[in-house]
Write a protein that binds this DNA or RNA. Sequence first.
RNA 1: GCGGAGGUGGCGGAACUGGUAGACGCAAGGGACUUAAAAUCCCUUGGGCCGCAAGGCCCGUGAGGGUUCGAUUCCCUCCCUCCGCACCA
Length: 842
Amino acid sequence: MDPEYNPQAIEAKWQKRWAEQKLFEAEADLARKKYYVLEMLPYPSGELHVGHVRNYMIGDALARYKWMRGYNVLHPIGWDAFGLPAENAAIKHQRHPSEFTFANIARMKQQFQRLGVSYDWRREVTTCLPEYYRWNQWFFLKMYERGLAYRKKSRVNWCPKCQTVLANEQVVDGCCWRHEDTPVRERELEQWFWRITAYAERLLDEMKELVRWPERVLTMQRNWIGKSAGALVDFLIPQLGEGVRIFTTRIDTIYGCTALFLAPEHPIVAKLVARSSSPEKLAAEAERIKNSAVRARVEVNLKKEGIATGFTARNPFNGEEVPVWIANFVLMEYGTGAVMAVPAHDQRDFEFCQAYGLPLRTVIVPLSSGGSPGSSPGETSGETGGPQALAEEAFVDYGRLVNSGPYTGLTSEQAIERMISDAEAQGFGKRSVQYRLKDWGISRQRYWGTPIPIIYCPGCGIVPVPEKDLPVVLPPNVRLTGEGQSPLASVPEFVNTTCPRCGGAARRETDTMDTFVDSSWYFYRYTDNQIATAPINRDAVQYWFPVDQYIGGIEHAILHLIYMRFFTKVMQDIGLVNFSEPVARLFTQGMVIKDGAKMSKSKGNVVDPTDMCNKYGADTLRLYMLFVAPPEKDLEWSDAGIEGAWRFLGRAYRLVARHARRLQATGAPDPGSDLGPEERHLLRKAHQVLRHITEDMEERWHFNTDVALLMEFVNDLSEREGAIDQGRVRPTVLKAAIEMFVQMLSLFAPHLADELWESLGHDQPLLRTRWPAYDPVLAAEDELEIPVQVNGKLRGRIRVRAASSDEEIQRQALHSVAQHLNGLSVVKVIVVPKKLVSVVAK
RNA sequence: GCGGAGGUGGCGGAACUGGUAGACGCAAGGGACUUAAAAUCCCUUGGGCCGCAAGGCCCGUGAGGGUUCGAUUCCCUCCCUCCGCACCA
């Protein structure tokens, strides 16, 4: 055995051997309990960076632990291989995106293998292959059949840099999520949508099954879905003879309504313009406001602006006619695109009415004010009904109604119930639930994605591609310019086709799908990536699902993780699976930070794991990533810190190597009897560490403390080198302690651990061994050091046998702090068993 | 503004259910080995004070208050940082 630690040789040797032994290959086996560890699949950008490594090492440590606990472990990986960067690179270098993509995959696969990650490579899934994306198309057809896929002309977010449509989720602060300095523009395009809103309630309700998901993620999803309960109320515009429907969550404030606000895009605006006394002026103003409203998504806290239409609307509750305005802050996309303005009780309405001198009327007072008007907001007069002078800000809380006709005196809660029922009874309103969640726009004007399987026939209209004709394959010959419309539109042999229904000439849809479609179900495909007759193999899914542990970045909390849930619910409804949530437990790890920014290729601050592997070896990198911070926290990369991990592994190696020959010749390890104090110490330490790591792997996942304990064990062992050389630690006992250490080390430094394990005389790799059994008797301390406090201050320490009675401990404790008790009388003594003695004295 | 997480040595972090604050590592300083260096090994290392020394005392977990024999941990008030959402009616 080499006396020095040589990670390059060791790692190459074991990676080869693991592959030969098919160590990480798992097959469904109903007789065995399964465990499915899943990490989010990477986009093949070209290089893994250490941020990826962190994600995959967490999963790898868990997978190895579960193998050693006797589980049949599924631990797969794949490639999220469609997407914009490959297409952009292709445009730049005049190459085909697949060239770029497959070259990157090959390189990154090598990096993964260099790290020794325990993947079952037979199960690899690559989403840009027709064998995979044909099933995206299949799912599209199923969505279409069920009315979940539809086409509509819509204003879409358009990134001028990507030259494509962005999903709402891809717009951050009004800018493209990939180009933070590029404001998103708006365009009108015919788009395909998936009706995720039909699942809003289930996405919300079935979160109750996600008990092992971080609360943070569930909260973010809840906010994203944005359910709010309220009422729809119709206001009549008498001069038009037509009604406008508003949505409100605060129908209890409706007697305080002093105006009606429309979104500039509201369809009724055109009719108002047509009937207006000054149509040109109103049309021009409406257009101006619309444009300022568009910019509102870019500029935070845009000033409220609007224009009076000259029309009035009748409040159905009190018959009062209020002016109709167009207001820039009213969103067409939410609710009905029209709101009642209650300036006394809504801050936005308040600001708007302030700006334009519209009146304000208080109809809600705080419950504490006893139901009489008088406190905030319009406290100027006790006069009922009339408009009042302006206050500082709106009173937006629930309270008690005033100035509200028959509802005066009710609490807000009571009034909301009663007013909704009354509105329903009289036919001018109804209960309603609105969601912030919008349908998922899946069309992309891009080449490198899944073609949408739709044909447009001049005679038959929209015709889905028949299932038997799938896949609709991406044509290989395409000229990519990065400009304007979908690249596929310029490939005649792709576009021109025949109608499956009438056989006449027809055109294909030329948009491709959002790549979030690919990642919404890839983890099903791992259970059988060969099946050609269906997207998933039901038997395999039945055995392996749900995913026991999913690990990935928090940045996917609402995008991927909500689409993935949506997909599974659709799959349940079409009978593919018999459950509604695919992931039992989710872990979101922290980001890797370098120089104050998230590590990413686009920021140019990546640390290449291969460099680290060449310098220190994969084991050092892996151990360091887990040691330097708990996994859920952000991690600041430090070049210096990794040296410590390297030194530790070198020490561990040399220590075991020094004894390996002798221990190999030693028979079975034996914790033995009649242990000497040094022997006792080593075994105790080993079992204490074992206990901590075992519990930690099951629940807490603070791998940094696990590694710290392994370091302590090595420190303890090297302090006892003298005792070992002098025979005070028998080889059988030493072997028992060292073998436990090596087994535990294998979670974090698997190559080194297998090398050491072999040097101790074993021929099976550690993954096939059983996790050691914890022995509480060996772990127990013989002697305890107990701190003694006097009046809350630490005044002494005593050493006692672990078996000592509380009385005995108290006696010794008082004795040890005697000089601090001079002249005082002991009032009380608190003995916390095995922990502490606290003396109260006066 | 709303919601969430957090604030501990020079640094990353530990302290799991209220019980010795600073484990483990980095950095720094000192020493051994070496012709020298690297590597390795050993020692010191929260701040202040007393003592020749063994040792002892005081302060200290963002700030202030509270509960308790005892608070990094629980409660109240405030400050700061990070993350998410943000005209959603």
